[in-house]
């Protein structure tokens, strides 16, 4: 968030540089069950972001001292691939990815019925193939679908999206330019059935009014993305009449 720029990111008609209105998110495409080895997986695109999520488990927890005798633990690894950004990213975990992994795991713990699998570990791997702002939300959205694809009992699926402020306007789902030259970023994830917040971060500069507006936009978009998540799972598992006749 550099905050200071003369760059025009929203034109006089309220149109953004990629042709969206303030309250529009980028096109979302989600596919469930895209990898063969993982117990569950999902591929997600939102705008120019491309993300893969895979789930292994519940399985034996390693290292063993992390085991919880009352429930499964969720271990998440968020990783940006070296070629996912314009300058090559040095491979391996950095402080940013450690923090993101932690908050994504915490957000998922709210919905996964971890109490069913004492001592086990549910491992969530998120790989960012291409990044264009909003990768933590894209990763969490994909990870939720991958968990459901793995057949892990959950209270609900978690959708996530960011809202923010750029060029003085409160905008939904910032793209890279809006994120880099904007004034604020607010990633949000919710449990749609109860509207509880499970992930929330903010950086930049916002008044209370702007922040409330951003949260409103993000809540609305989370519910839209939730529908896409459900559709992806239905497409994976729905049995059509022709399928049944084939058998």
């Amino acid at each position: 968030m550099s905050g200071q720029t003369d760059m025009v990111l929203v034109d006089k008609k309220g149109m953004r540089i990629d042709g969206r209105k303030a309250d529009e998110h980028r096109p979302v495409h989600i596919e469930a069950g895209v990898l063969s080895n993982a117990d569950g997986s999902a591929y997600l695109e939102i705008g120019k972001n491309k993300v893969l999520a895979a789930v292994y488990g519940p399985r034996e927890c390693h290292p063993r001292h992390l085991q919880d005798p009352t429930k499964a633990i969720i271990q998440c690894k968020y990783n940006m691939q070296a070629f996912s950004v314009s300058d090559r990213k040095r491979p391996g975990p950095d402080r940013r990815s450690v923090e993101i992994s932690k908050i994504i795991a915490e957000a998922l713990e709210k919905v996964v019925l971890t109490e069913l699998y004492p001592r086990a570990s549910i491992d969530v791997y998120i790989e960012i193939l291409q990044a264009n702002a909003g990768t933590r939300c894209a990763g969490l959205t994909a990870a939720s679908v991958a968990l459901a694809d793995a057949g892990i009992p959950m209270r609900d699926i978690v959708p996530a999206v960011a809202a923010g402020k750029a060029d003085g306007h409160v905008l939904l789902d910032l793209n890279k330019e809006e994120d880099n030259f904007g004034q604020a970023d607010v990633p949000l994830a919710i449990v749609p059935s109860t509207d509880e917040i499970v992930l929330l971060q903010m950086d930049g500069n916002m008044t209370r009014e702007e922040f409330d507006k951003a949260i409103d936009l993000a809540f609305g978009a989370c519910h839209e993305i939730y529908e896409k998540q459900k559709t992806a799972l239905k497409e994976r598992y729905a049995v059509t009449k022709e399928d049944e006749e084939d058998e």
Binding site: E106, D195, M202, G204
Partner: peptide, 18 residues
């Protein structure tokens, strides 16, 4: 004005609580 926020923990918060 708000400059940074971070939600942590395994639980959730509602909008009223926020």
């Amino acid at each position: 004005n708000f400059r940074a926020m971070q939600k942590g923990g395994r639980g959730s918060i509602t909008r009223d609580e926020l």
